[in-house]
């Protein structure tokens, strides 16, 4: 029977969610594998593990539950060990590194922030800042929308201006929130966001961090900010 690993904690963690339902259908009960000063949160692995919605949620829920009781190094979804002994071997081999990282993550959670432009608001800004674009837009409107060529010309210029704003706004988001956090990490590469950044935040400073997000929202109403957290510190496992 192979072993699925959710995360790694210190042996003295004390509040690991043992017997909680993990991945699989029916859910495999969560248990621990101990080695030295470390403990791995594991369950049996279902015969055929695939990234199903149910299992992704189970992975996430086990880590959230464990993280509420103390620092946990979250594993990426889908890591399967041949057996419990192989888990012990890994814990023994990397004990120092894992303990150091757990120490660094103690009392901290991850917040992921994604930013997009509100299209109408950013177009407003771009036109407000650039008289030439405004004139082009006015001319088009007076001509009943303008010719295909005119629309293309205006659109291309506006797209360039918006793209420029995406870059400067990404920096603005990072700067606005970095002071309220301990560490930051760029999110996985994905398109659709002008910024996708994870921040490591001390639990006792979460209110300040969220206040910094609100301040940014007020200051930059052309940004649509999505904040997700508190999360297990996926982006800060070292």
């Amino acid at each position: 029977m192979t072993t699925y690993v959710y995360g790694i904690a210190r042996r003295g963690h004390g509040r690991l969610p043992e017997r909680m339902g993990g991945i699989g259908d029916p859910p495999c009960p969560v248990r621990t594998v101990e080695q030295g000063d470390l403990v791995a949160l594991v369950s049996d692995a279902p015969q055929e593990l695939r990234p199903k919605r149910r299992d992704l949620l189970a992975h996430q829920n086990v880590l959230a539950e464990a993280g509420a009781g103390g620092p946990v190094l979250p594993m990426r979804f889908g890591g399967v060990s041949p057996d419990d002994d192989a888990v012990r071997a890994v814990l023994a081999e990397h004990e120092k590194r894992y303990l150091e990282r757990l120490e660094a993550l103690d009392g901290k959670v991850e917040y992921n922030v994604k930013a997009t432009h509100d299209e109408e608001a950013v177009l407003h800004q771009v036109l407000a800042e650039n008289a030439e674009l405004r004139a082009m837009s006015d001319a088009n409107r007076k001509a009943g929308g303008g010719t295909y060529e005119q629309k293309l010309r205006l659109g291309e210029r506006i797209a360039a201006a918006v793209q420029q704003r995406e870059a400067t706004d990404a920096v603005m988001v990072e700067r606005a929130l970095e002071d309220a956090s301990e560490e930051r990490s760029p999110g996985p590469q994905s398109t659709g966001w002008l910024a996708n950044i994870s921040f490591l935040v001390k639990r006792e400073h979460t209110a300040e961090f969220l206040a910094a997000v609100d301040t940014l929202r007020e200051r930059a109403p052309h940004l649509v900010l999505q904040v997700h957290g508190p999360l297990p510190p996926y982006s800060f496992t070292g």
Binding site: Q60, R76, G79, V90
Partner: peptide, 21 residues
């Protein structure tokens, strides 16, 4: 789930000795 899917799938600790789904 969708909001954090990329983190669950693309971040987090990876152990070389383990098989990955």
């Amino acid at each position: 789930l969708y909001d954090v899917l990329e983190l669950v799938l693309d971040r987090g600790l990876v152990i070389d000795a383990f098989v990955r789904v």
